[in-house]
Amino acid sequence: MRKKELKIVISFHTTAEAIAMEAECLKDEIPGRLIPVPRQISAGCGLAWSMPVTWEGDVDQWMKEKKLRWDSLGVYEI
């Protein structure tokens, strides 16, 4: 059984937005991965980006700089 850890989960309206997030994170070596949207969250495309809360950057600001789009209510800590 996987140990439950607090994560940042970012949801997206479209699959293209989720894949763009994954591509930019890989380029900048930001930890995380695409996951199915957890049941506690609803999102249009069914994909979300999960990353550790211990990441030292400001994910909102980084996403704005990269011109990435996400669900307006879509940054959660779960």
Rank of each mutant, 00 (worst) to 15 (best):
28 D>H: 09
45 C>L: 08
9 V>K: 09
59 V>T: 11
38 P>V: 04
77 E>H: 13
43 A>P: 08
51 M>C: 12
9 V>P: 05
48 A>H: 11
69 R>A: 11
74 G>S: 08
54 T>L: 01
49 W>E: 01
73 L>F: 15
36 P>Y: 11
49 W>G: 01
78 I>W: 14
19 I>S: 02
17 E>L: 01
51 M>G: 14
58 D>H: 09
23 A>H: 13
64 K>Y: 04
7 K>S: 09
30 I>C: 04
50 S>I: 08
48 A>M: 11
34 L>D: 04
53 V>K: 10
75 V>A: 10
67 K>N: 04
44 G>W: 04
56 E>I: 08
43 A>T: 15
51 M>A: 12
6 L>H: 02
20 A>F: 01
55 W>H: 14
50 S>H: 09
36 P>T: 12
25 C>V: 13
10 I>S: 03
66 K>N: 00
25 C>W: 12
9 V>Y: 11
23 A>G: 05
5 E>M: 08
34 L>I: 12
56 E>D: 12
46 G>I: 10
71 D>F: 13
53 V>R: 09
7 K>F: 06
19 I>R: 10
37 V>T: 15
16 A>T: 10
74 G>K: 09
44 G>C: 04
50 S>F: 05
74 G>C: 07
52 P>F: 05
74 G>V: 09
63 M>L: 06
43 A>Y: 06
2 R>S: 09
6 L>Y: 00
62 W>I: 03
9 V>H: 06
33 R>H: 13
